[in-house]
Design a protein around this nucleic acid. Structure first.
Lengths: 208, 208
DNA sequence: ACATGTGAAATCGTTCACAGCT
DNA sequence: AGCTGTGAACGATTTCACATGT
């Protein structure tokens, strides 16, 4: 009944997943679900679903379970995403382009404000539906916008510089795809997500 | 002094990071490091570094710290990676191609055995340095190989089918980039890694 | 002195179990 | 009878703190 002040990392991740799958389920005509049915959808346990839903302050009832439409609205409100979020991407290489393409195709949930690269062949052009500026212009281009997310897909040598410039431009959430950790002020939320590391971890556990 | 039987998920991830950064440091001529120096490199704490290193069974000494060369060798052995690992990728779209390109450029650490797609324009061609087969041939093509890692970068509707076929072909570690969780036997290690979810999580925490 | 290796404590996250509602 | 909401138990991970070695 009461809403938590600060929601754990893992819970937020799952709430986003719940919302996505619930929307999908609603489109098939289902009106409401019990916690164990949501658990089946996401591959978790009923207890965990209920615990996670405590964080959003929406309460179901034993007869009907959770009304999907209301629950989704509630998660939306909790995640502060009335009109989606905005992002800027730095480093228009293979991975950067793949990400731009992925979000260019999507509906208005995610808005890519700008892309940046150091390569003069790319600067000035529109790549994957997104205007590409020079890295040195990060601050100028982003000033005046609220950028929720900065994506770093540059070569490893540029990672720290680019992170510094994004922070300087007021971006307070970063995803770093390079192999080195970068230093940012503690007020900035950083996710270090390198594919090679994750792949190697999975390869390791696949051999027990 | 004693080596743990089962190493935690998080520790494995950090060990891979340590190894990568230690190799880099060694190339600059540094011979040995103390735990707090390693902590600075990776953005962690000295206590955590020491705790993680307990898992690999390599022991430093208070005068010199950890000898980089030996430590890297020890992590290598622990991660069971004498000659890297092998992977197969299914879904040669934007993201799939970006991943293939990324690992095609790398040295022999990671070997991409094969790629698969459903599109007949792609089947039979060599894409990003990797031969592309039809999805229905997963089992035939992979039989006889040990595949440590299956990467799923197909559209969401195909995710479960593709996962089933990879498991059937003997692949016991999967990374799933689609927005839906897939069901696999408990003997298979699965990592669900969707970019949109991670991005939205970071965007959320960037707003506190 | 100062850094390591490691029990023990603290923190964080998940699961259990059950009172209460419908 | 069956499900929700939640305190309490449990398990995992991180941090503390200090005995030990050089």
């Amino acid at each position: 009944v009461s809403v938590q002040a600060s929601i754990p990392d893992k819970t937020v991740e799952r709430l986003i997943l719940y919302r996505s799958l619930l929307k999908h389920t609603a489109e098939k005509g289902t009106r409401s679900l019990f916690s164990h049915q949501i658990a089946d959808l996401v591959g978790g346990t009923a207890a965990q679903v209920r615990r996670d839903l405590m964080a959003v302050g929406y309460t179901g009832n034993p007869r009907e379970g959770y009304k999907i439409e209301d629950l989704v609205a509630c998660i939306d409100k909790m995640l502060n995403a009335p009109e989606g979020f905005t992002m800027a991407l730095v480093g228009v290489g293979n991975l950067g382009r793949a990400i731009l393409n992925h979000f260019a195709g999507l509906s208005g949930q995610t808005k890519v404000l700008a892309a940046f690269d150091i390569d003069s062949n790319k600067v000035g052009r529109v790549i994957c539906g997104c205007r590409c500026h020079h890295i040195s212009e990060i601050k100028q281009v982003l000033t005046g916008y609220t950028v929720n997310l900065g994506v770093i897909t540059v070569p490893v040598t540029e990672a720290q510089t680019v992170a510094d410039r994004l922070v300087e431009a007021g971006v307070r959430g970063l995803v770093n795809f390079t192999p080195v950790p970068v230093k940012v002020p503690s007020s900035v939320y950083m996710e270090h997500m390198e594919l090679a590391t994750v792949f190697e971890k999975v390869a390791f556990f696949s051999r027990h």
